[in-house]
């Protein structure tokens, strides 16, 4: 797109980017320093000082004392059920909205979009009562139901945006090949939509892994707590031990980082469809 960049400009350009990048990385470096120091080291020297000795065992301690394995397992379990199931449900709906002869396609899409306007807060009390009434309060199925619900508007928006960019000619070709609608969905649309699905996987995994408000209200059993609740409880109980807290924070971030790195190359392409409206 840029045709010619002069070399001084280029230097300035890089300098600005590098400085910004360093600023963005600072909190991370800082939390890492804290995580590998001993408490004495932390108290006696300024925080930006290099650790006198690297205390990897802080991670082990945080893992044990913070019950991190339990929290991570719980959250991972929720993610592994919620993310694929949610994408399937959303994809089916987006398929109906873009690929089937459907008079209500646009009103229904608007109807789903309205969901993005409803802040979760507005649903909490009735949801709490509802879950209780159907005996799902504090159970995994109840949590799945709620997480699925809040993912639907965004998922449909992204997938519908992407499905629309897939040429209709392919449908006709499929029709000639004798594919039914379901076949079309499974064999043509889904495989072609991998970038959008990858994008959704990242977003959904992140949103679920990081979710706090719903978890705070709908999960009360300690043995079902998710990672965000666990971290906060850890802070409540160990509010004075910054080294362990930082170590716990870093541990908790690993899974999302991995998912992000795995799928990030699809990212921009997956979004393109929906950005174009």
């Amino acid at each position: 797109m840029e045709l010619r960049i002069s070399s001084t400009r280029k230097v300035v350009h890089y300098a600005v980017l590098i400085i910004l990048a360093i600023l963005f990385l600072l909190p991370l470096v800082f939390i890492f320093f804290t995580a590998v120091k001993s408490n004495a080291d932390l108290a006696s020297k300024p925080i930006y000082a290099f650790p006198a000795k690297i205390h990897w065992e802080n991670f082990v301690k945080a893992w044990d004392q913070g019950k991190m394995s339990m929290y991570m397992k719980n959250t991972l379990f929720i993610c592994l059920v919620k993310v694929p199931l949610g994408i399937l449900i959303e994809a089916l709906a987006a398929f109906a909205l873009t690929r089937l002869k459907f008079r209500w396609s646009i009103p229904m899409f608007s109807f789903f979009l309205i969901g993005m306007m409803i802040p979760m807060q507005a649903t909490l009390v009735p949801l709490n009562m509802l879950l209780n009434a159907i005996h799902l309060k504090g159970t995994y199925p109840g949590i799945f139901l709620i997480y699925l619900g809040f993912g639907i508007p965004f998922g449909i928006m992204i997938l519908r945006g992407f499905f629309r960019t897939i040429p209709k000619e392919l449908d006709e070709a499929a029709l000639i090949d004798g594919c039914s609608d379901m076949g079309k969905f499974l064999r043509i649309i889904l495989p072609l939509s991998m970038p959008a699905i990858a994008t959704l996987i990242i977003f959904d995994f992140m949103a679920t892994w990081n979710e706090f408000l719903l978890a705070q209200i709908f999960i009360s059993d300690q043995s079902m707590r998710t990672i965000t609740l666990g971290l906060l409880a850890f802070r409540g109980d160990w509010s004075t031990d910054y080294t362990l807290m930082s170590a716990a924070v870093l541990i908790s971030v690993l899974p999302v980082m991995i998912v992000y790195l795995l799928f990030q190359k699809y990212f921009v392409n997956g979004l393109a469809g929906s950005v174009k409206g």
């Binding site: 159907i134 159970t139 995994y140 199925p141 109840g142 139901l145 059993d221 043995s223 079902m224």
Partner: peptide
């Protein structure tokens, strides 16, 4: 099914 599973789904490992 998920809905019906409420009663017996005290899913905590304990």
């Amino acid at each position: 099914a998920a809905c019906g599973g409420g009663n017996n789904s005290q899913s905590s490992p304990a």
